[in-house]
């Protein structure tokens, strides 16, 4: 669909499909992640909802004290999402049809291979690191919150109550710990090994192996392997993903692909519009000038004709006058002559 869209947009601008460079439609192979980048595999069948990960996250990231202590599991009664003071939350799902015990699922940034937030940020405040984490630089952030609009997983949160220096807040996979050779806070704290840290490729292999070994225990799908172009955080679960609030309609196209076609049109518009508009201007100026010229010619012709007519008239009038004058002179001469001959007769 995106190919035909790009083609269509190309036609819109270039006016002819022939003008569309083939390169534009040939970028099918997208980024498949930095080699050897890290990720985390979350196996919801092992999670017991103890919230140790939440507590560890809060501690290693020096986040504010929570309203409800981390050992109080009454918060699991209602659905929560990460917010400005919380990078990760565990939610509880009672799904009778699939298991007798509740299913717990941890939510945090999925660290997309091609992140929507990074693509949407107009100051480039997000960076996809070679280690796999998507990190945020608050020293660049303007606070437009387009990243929050863009994120398909509803992860980034915002410090709405901070009037001077509000930040976007989200999990950064404890990038500062990873580069020190340590585990992310949540992974280190998990008592059930529901979280496994490792190279993304290895994690996919582990996930597949578990599904192969225990086919009745798992849905045959590794969430995050392809969703939105792939993520560094991966999930396997026993309940259908929709039942644990994970959207399965996101598709496999990475977010930047959604806007690349439209952005690719910018140079086309800049190139084509001035030509068309300049052409329209020149065409109308030409028509105006033609009309002007025709008008002038018509006027000149009319004036010329009138002038010629007037001259002709004057000439004829003067000729007639001359004729009349001559006639009058002749008449007078004739009369004089007649009178002279009459007079002579009287004298004789």
């Amino acid at each position: 669909m995106s190919t035909s869209r790009r083609k269509f947009l190309g036609w819109m601008a270039a006016g002819a499909s022939a003008a569309l460079p083939t390169d534009l439609t040939a970028q099918h192979n997208h980024f498949t992640g930095y080699p050897d980048s890290y990720g985390v595999l979350h196996d919801t069948t092992l999670c017991i909802g103890c919230r140790s990960c939440e507590a560890a996250c809060n501690e290693v990231n020096s986040l504010p004290e929570p309203d409800v202590p981390f050992d109080d599991d009454t918060v699991l009664a209602h659905k929560r999402r990460p917010d400005a003071g919380t990078f990760t939350v565990v939610n509880k799902y009672d799904i009778e049809a699939y298991s007798q015990t509740p299913v717990f699922r941890k939510t945090q940034c999925n660290h997309c291979l091609e992140p929507a937030c990074a693509s949407a940020c107009f100051v480039g405040a997000f960076t996809k690191t070679a280690e796999g984490a998507v990190i945020y630089d608050s020293s660049l952030c303007v606070g437009c919150r387009y990243c929050i609009i863009a994120c398909p997983f509803n992860i980034p949160a915002y410090e709405y109550d901070e009037p001077i220096e509000p930040r976007v807040m989200k999990c950064h996979m404890c990038h500062f710990r990873i580069v020190e050779g340590k585990l992310p806070g949540c992974v280190e704290a998990c008592p059930m090994e529901a979280l496994t840290f490792g190279k993304r490729d290895d994690l996919i292999a582990i996930a597949r192996e578990r599904i192969r070994k225990y086919p009745s225990r798992y849905i045959d799908h590794v969430y995050g392997e392809y969703e939105m172009g792939g993520t560094n955080w991966l999930y396997i679960t026993g309940a259908p993903f929709e039942e644990v609030d994970m959207r399965t309609d996101l598709g496999v196209d990475p977010a930047p692909k959604m806007t690349s076609g439209a952005l690719g049109m910018v140079p086309m518009v800049i190139g084509v519009w001035p030509v068309l508009l300049g052409g329209a201007f020149l065409m109308h100026r030409h028509l105006d000038r033609l009309a002007e010229q025709e008008k002038n010619e018509a006027v000149a012709e009319a004036v010329g004709r009138a002038q010629a007519e007037a001259e002709e008239k004057a000439k004829r009038a003067s000729e007639r006058a001359q004729q009349e004058k001559e006639q009058a002179v002749e008449k007078a001469l004739k009369k004089a002559r007649e009178e002279a001959s009459k007079g002579g007769q009287v004298e004789d």
Binding site: V142, G143, C144
Partner: peptide, 23 residues
């Protein structure tokens, strides 16, 4: 926007050219 005094940032400090918002 959260930090309006930074509105010139996309043009003079760090250009996020992959963003439709930048355009």
């Amino acid at each position: 926007v959260g930090r309006p005094w930074r509105l010139p940032y996309p043009f003079f400090v760090s250009q996020g050219v992959t963003s439709v918002m930048f355009e």
